[in-house]
Amino acid sequence: MGTDEENSALQLDLAKQLVRHLEAGQQDAAATVVRQLRIPYERDLFEELGKLTRDLHEALNSFRGDSRLIELTRDEIPDAKERLNYVVTMTEQATHRTLNAVDEAMPIAESLHDRSASLTEIWQRFRQRELSLDEFREFARALDNFFLASNEETEHLRSLMSEIMMAQDFQDLTGQIIRRVIRLVHEVEENLVGLVRLSSARMEVSKEAKPIASDTEAVATSHGPIVPNTHDVVADVVSGQDDVDALLSSLGF
């Protein structure tokens, strides 16, 4: 290469000048030559530094553009906290609903058990012919009452058990909300990994390609239960079954 040869010749010439200046004891002139000798190397260094600065600037800019980290921390994370609070409230309500039904059912079951046990005892005495006529009359009355009451009370127990069953619907509803928060956590994680990778080239690339678990995969059209005090409330949502029925009937249902 011509220029390389020219450069070498120039450098050689400068080196010779440097030797001459040094032999002659001309320190100032020698320093000037040393500065001239350095110029080509400094130019490379500055070019390299400039390139690095541009790369860094571009990387930061594109991260700012691509990353949802700002949006996530500003909007989504407070939203997710509200969702998790709602899950706590819902599970608490479901537990109280269940325990209330159990509190109501337990004395009924106990009383049915006690009365049937005491009637069984009298029945045994009747079978052994130990009952007087008066005692038998009283027993017959007690049986009548028991049959009547047990009919009502077992029906009450059935409805309480149904109540306990319906209270378990929280698992589905809170499960959907929690899965949504898991998707958010996953997204935050990916954005943080991006940030770390940007600041450290040693971050392993293989980790970024980690597949998303199937149950947290992005869902196309569904949204899950509406949670109060979150972004959900700005959406156009129905307030309950009556609202659904009204909407459907307006559509000709």
């Binding site: 899950g224 509406i226 156009d236 079954q241």
Partner: peptide
């Protein structure tokens, strides 16, 4: 649990018979 109006309309248009 999907409660957006547009979703209920969407289901109705897709031919659902009831929506709870």
């Amino acid at each position: 649990a999907e409660a957006k109006r547009e979703q209920i309309v969407e289901a109705a248009q897709a031919g659902v018979n009831g929506y709870i």
